[in-house]
Structure formats: structure tokens, C-alpha cells
Nucleic acid binder design. Structure first.
Length: 439
RNA sequence: GGCCCCAUCGUCUAGCGGUCUAGGACGUCGCCCUUUCACGGCGAAAACACGGGUUCGAUCCCCGUUGGGGUCACCA
């Protein structure tokens, strides 16, 4: 069986962390199985859907490295929905309803007030009072037997159809609601696995009956626990971290994906460079069923780790002009964002303002400025410089190295001075020591 | 309110009645490396929500309490 997964966002906003995780797991699973990852733009809601968000979603997926194998749009498939809807109508699985939203809302409140589940109650279709109203349409749930399936992450599931409302599938004006078109598309596209958040479990129960009503085998279902944040819930409808902030913050997509792929699973979270590695050990059975806490700080930590592991070839075209492999290897261990490289590169290949030093530090640096021109740079100047200074000043350890580091790099911390000195060259080093000593 | 999930170190989790003096990962702390710091390496501290059962014996099974999450739309 060829695996097909799908990610089905509506173009009513940008992607966010929760969305991205769903997209990732679908993409990863398809990749692992050598299957197809479909992006289905769920744009049946013409009011809220926009071409801009449609485009942004595809751009964001590309940026993440999760470009789909196929893109389809629900707005282009209405003929298909019409045909299938007609089949269901003729078969009596879809029926006309005439209540107004206000009436339904009132009824819900009454039921809730009585401590009853607010389930839709089927009406007497022959009621004359309904004459002349334009109907909307509901799918008739089969109350005959419990709805059951074996969920890939939640295990055996069982729903009593009496506790579910017949879902509205089509509005008075003929427009579609998501539930039915989604099933029709999953059948038509040969989707074999539906991976989504646990906020969809009861939808799945209903949709399972739709698959049956349409004479199709249902896909395998995997409902993952949602993510929560310290500030609250990160679900798709409430305020959450959007992909635009993520992109703007200069984080590597793989840092985000490394966390999202494994957070809430028993797999250790680590900075992974290749999507294939993430795909290889994706296992729904290893997913926890409790909501996991998402913390952006973890992404930042992973981002640094990831950078420290990246090879020159991985980042070469994103580095400033003149950056070389040795400079990358020297500096990468001190980067938190890739953009940090530029400033560090200036330290070894450009110019910067040395900071002002205290009197003691300035004296030491002045001495260093005298010694530096006399050193044989090719012999590894750092040790010679340190040794000479040590004997002439009696200083050692931090008192000796800290001022030099500050004068030469402008930073409190960084790569080993031996490598930095060599990389920046004698002229640059002498000039910096001299200016720092005279400021 | 009904229904459904969940409850182990700060966080994500392993554990499927004795093997648990409860394992791993991230974070934290310490040590080493660096004649400094960062990177890196090594090590340590750190948890079974509570109350009842069942059992010779409960982290593990049952019930309840408490606490989290989800859902019950003419949104997806």
C-alpha cells in the first residue's frame, strides 16, 4: 500500500506552531514510508479564505523544508462534492433542516441548562411551519452501533453516536462545511493516514460514518495530543506563536522541527540536521497522550546546538562574502543564530571599535602592543605572546587573558584565542592592541 | 453539565505486580579541557499528585478526590 498523508489548513491565517507540528508529522510519515505528502488547501469558506494566506502557507512550508508533493484546493473541487452529496441525499444519509441558528442556539442552552449534552434533535420533517424556508443539510448519523477505531496514538476508540449531533454539511446558500468535503477528498486522493490534533477526535468519529456511507475504507487515524504553553494553550484558534515571528527571529527551521518532531514523544529531543533522520524514527506508538509544553527557549537552545554541528557547505551561501571554511569551523561553536556569524567574522576579517579598558588592563594591552609586532605569526603567536607577557608582568590566568580577549575581540567570551589570533593576522592584532591601549 | 484523554525528576518521557536503591533526554549544578571565557567532554542533584481498596507484595490493577487537556458550531 502506498502511503498518502495530507495537511489541510484553511487559508485564513498564517501557520503557527501547532499547525507546523501537524504538517511535520504528516510530511515525516509520508517520507518515512516513501509515500506522498499532499497539501490540501481547505478554502471552502470563501468569506475568510484569501489568496495571500494560500500563498503564505506554501511559502512557509517551503521555508520549513516541508514542501508538499501535491497541492489541491477544495474550491476547485465543488463538482465532485456536488455529485457525492447527491448520492448521500438520494440514499437518505443527508437530509434537509430548517431551524435557524437562533433556534438551535436556544435549544442548546436549554439542554445544557438541564445538564444534558447539547446534541441536535432531529425534527419532524413534515412540519408545515417549515414551508417556504430554504434548507440547510445534515448528515444522518447511524445510531445503530458504536463508532470504533484503533487510533495510532490513542489506541482503541469508541463513540456512542447518540451523543453526537448530525453534523451540518451544507448551508442554505449551497456552500460547504468542512466535514464532508474533507472525507470526499480523502477518498478521492487516496489518503491512507490522517494525522491531526486530538481536537478532531469527535470529528473523526462522525467522518468514519461518512466514509462508510460513501462506500470507502477509512484511512488510519492518528490523533496527537495538543501542545500547551506556559501562557496558555497553543491550539490553532487561540493566540499562539506564528511562523512569521519564527522566521523573523532568525531561527533555523530544523531547530524548530527537531523540537516539534519529538516533543511529547519518548524520543529524546536533539538538534537534528536532516529531515530524513527525523522521519526515520517517527513512531506514533511513541507519542504521549498528555499535552506537552512547548517552550520557545528550547528552540533557541536547539538552534545553537544545530549551528555548532552544521558544516560549512550547509551554510556557505548564507554567510557573508569572504567567509571561508576555516573561519566557519573556528566560529560556529559560539553562534546562537546564524546571523551572529557576521559580527564574529568582522573580528577576524574586518574592523571594529575596541572597547574602553580600565587602567590596569590598558597597561597590559600596551605591553602586548609592543610585543605583538616582534612575533613570528606563522609559529602560532598566542602562546609566545602570553608567555612573554606573563614573565614581564607577573600576571596569569584571567587577569592576563581577559583584557587581551577584550581588546582583540571586543567580547567577554568566544573561541580560543590561539585560533582567533592566527585568523585575524598580525596587522589587525597589532592595530587593535594599539588603539585599545590608547583609548 | 455530558462524553473522551492524561497524571513519574523543573520539562519531554521509560516503566506494562516483585528485576525500582525508578532508567534516558533537555535544562540546572559540579569537574575536566581552555595557562581566561565560550564550545566540547565527563559526572552529580532531581520524580512515582492525594485517599481508599485488590494482593504475600503496588509506580504498575480497581474506585474516588484533586489537577491538567480536548470536545459537545450553519469554524476548520
Amino acid at each position: 500500500m502506498t502511503v498518502t498523508t495530507r495537511f489541510a489548513p484553511s487559508p485564513t491565517g498564517r501557520l503557527h506552531v501547532g499547525n507546523i507540528r501537524t504538517a511535520l508529522h504528516n510530511a515525516l510519515f509520508a517520507r518515512k514510508q516513501g509515500g506522498t505528502f499532499v497539501l490540501r488547501i481547505d478554502d471552502t469558506d470563501a468569506e475568510r479564505s484569501t489568496a495571500e494566506f494560500d500563498q503564505a502557507i506554501r511559502d512557509d512550508l517551503d521555508w520549513l523544508g516541508l514542501a508538499p508533493d501535491l497541492v489541491v484546493r477544495q474550491s476547485g473541487r465543488f463538482d465532485l462534492y456536488e455529485r457525492e452529496f447527491e448520492r448521500l441525499r438520494v440514499a437518505g444519509r443527508v437530509y434537509a433542516c430548517y431551524e435557524t441558528p437562533e433556534e438551535l442556539e436556544l435549544r442548546r442552552k436549554v439542554l445544557l441548562g438541564r445538564g444534558l449534552p447539547p446534541v441536535y434533535e432531529r425534527q419532524d420533517l413534515t412540519s408545515p411551519a417549515l414551508e417556504g424556508r430554504q434548507p440547510h443539510w445534515r448528515f444522518r448519523l447511524d445510531h445503530g452501533a458504536p463508532i470504533e477505531w484503533r487510533d495510532l496514538v490513542r489506541g482503541p476508540q469508541r463513540f456512542d453516536p447518540h451523543l453526537l449531533s448530525d453534523p451540518v454539511v451544507r448551508r442554505e446558500d449551497g456552500s460547504w462545511l468542512y466535514l464532508l468535503p474533507s472525507v470526499i477528498d480523502d477518498i478521492d486522493l487516496g489518503v491512507t493516514h490522517v494525522v491531526r490534533g486530538e481536537d478532531h477526535v469527535s470529528n473523526s468519529a462522525v467522518q468514519l460514518q461518512m466514509f462508510a456511507a460513501l462506500g470507502a475504507n477509512p484511512p488510519a487515524l492518528a490523533h496527537e495530543a495538543l501542545l500547551v504553553a506556559a501562557e496558555g494553550k497553543l491550539s490553532k484558534r487561540l493566540g499562539s506563536l506564528g511562523v512569521e515571528e519564527l522566521r523573523a527571529s532568525g531561527l533555523e527551521p530544523m531547530a524548530l522541527l527537531s523540537l516539534l518532531a519529538r516533543l511529547g514523544t519518548s524520543q529524546p529531543v536533539e538538534a537534528i540536521v536532516e529531515l530524513d533522520e527525523l522521519a526515520a524514527d517517527l513512531d506514533f506508538a511513541r507519542f504521549g497522550r498528555a499535552p506537552a509544553h512547548f517552550d520557545l527557549h528550547d528552540v533557541e537552545l536547539l538552534n545553537a546546538r544545530l549551528l555548532h554541528r552544521l558544516e560549512f557547505a550547509d551554510v556557505a551561501e548564507r554567510l557573508p562574502d569572504g567567509a571561508t571554511e576555516p573561519s566557519w569551523l573556528l566560529l560556529r561553536g559560539n553562534l546562537e543564530r546564524l546571523s551572529d556569524f557576521a559580527a564574529w567574522f568582522t573580528v577576524i576579517a574586518g574592523e571594529f571599535e575596541p572597547p574602553e579598558l580600565g587602567d590596569d588592563e590598558r597597561r597590559l594591552v600596551a605591553k602586548a602592543a609592543e610585543i605583538a609586532p616582534t612575533l613570528d605569526w606563522s609559529a602560532g603567536p598566542w602562546q609566545a605572546l602570553a608567555e612573554t607577557l606573563k614573565t614581564s608582568t607577573g600576571l596569569k590566568g584571567k587577569a592576563l587573558f581577559h583584557p587581551l580577549r577584550l581588546a582583540l575581540t571586543g567580547r567577554e567570551s568566544g573561541p580560543e584565542m590561539a585560533g582567533l589570533l592566527l585568523a585575524m593576522g598580525q596587522d589587525r592584532a597589532v592595530a587593535r592592541l594599539t588603539t585599545a591601549a590608547n583609548r
